[in-house]
Design a protein around this nucleic acid. Structure first.
Length: 209
DNA sequence: TGCCAGGCCCTCTTTAGGGCCTT
């Protein structure tokens, strides 16, 4: 696993759950290495079923656009190669993890990395945000945006920017500049009212640059 | 045909219910 290399991903899908037959229709992702985007991945995929009018409106992805796209199996095989052995991040990761696992399971592929969730982290680091939807966090962080949400690459790019803003905020507030994936995992399992104590104690026990 | 999830998190909690997030 490469040091400080993360894949931040986002799925557009036919619905909310692969358990009831929903499939992926688009995957977008960026690779962050030491805080910089070094690679991007975006592909539509044909789910083998028509998508609802709601999803066409919600994502802007039409049935016509999916007609000539490669199948989920073909696209997800390429995406598994892209992920390699990096750790993974998504906004509300439990959603994207379910689809990633379901689609990769169909083609007998897997990934060795671990997931972390920008939604769970934002609830702890940006406790003053009005809510923790991706769009609201982008506004909260004063991140430049053209508002084209609900497309996979765009949302993964925005999630990456919010992610970096959270790390910067932790650095500024607690003087923690070497934030490991393990610390993030621990943070996202810490009750909100104990985050300050955890980060303060971590700061005292860690070496500063 | 009709219907559709699930993990997190708070609280008027833990023998539960409902809002938040994701499409």
């Amino acid at each position: 696993m490469k040091a400080n290399s993360l894949v931040i991903l986002d799925f557009e899908t036919t619905g909310l759950s692969p358990d009831v037959g929903d499939r992926a229709i688009e995957i977008g992702a960026v690779r962050l290495v030491n805080g910089e985007v070094t690679e991007r991945f975006q592909e539509l995929m044909n789910p083998g079923q028509r998508v609802s009018g709601f999803i066409e409106d919600y994502t802007g992805i039409s049935n016509d656009m999916l007609e000539d796209a490669d199948s989920c199996e073909v696209v997800m095989d390429r995406f598994a190669d892209f992920i390699a052995d990096d750790n993974l991040i998504a906004h509300n990761a439990s959603f994207d993890k379910r689809f990633l696992d379901a689609e990769l399971n169909r083609i007998g592929r897997n990934y060795p990395g671990e997931f972390s969730c920008s939604l769970l982290l934002s609830r702890r680091i940006f406790q003053n945000s009005y809510n923790h939807k991706l769009g609201e966090l982008v506004r909260f962080c004063n991140i430049e945006s053209d508002g084209d949400f609900h497309r996979a690459l765009y949302d993964s790019e925005m999630t990456a920017k919010v992610w970096m803003a959270m790390l910067e905020s932790m650095g500024e507030r607690y003087e923690i500049y070497d934030i490991s994936f393990d610390l993030i995992k621990k943070l996202t399992k810490t009750p909100k009212n104990k985050v300050n104590k955890l980060l303060s104690s971590y700061n005292l026990s860690s070496e500063k640059p």
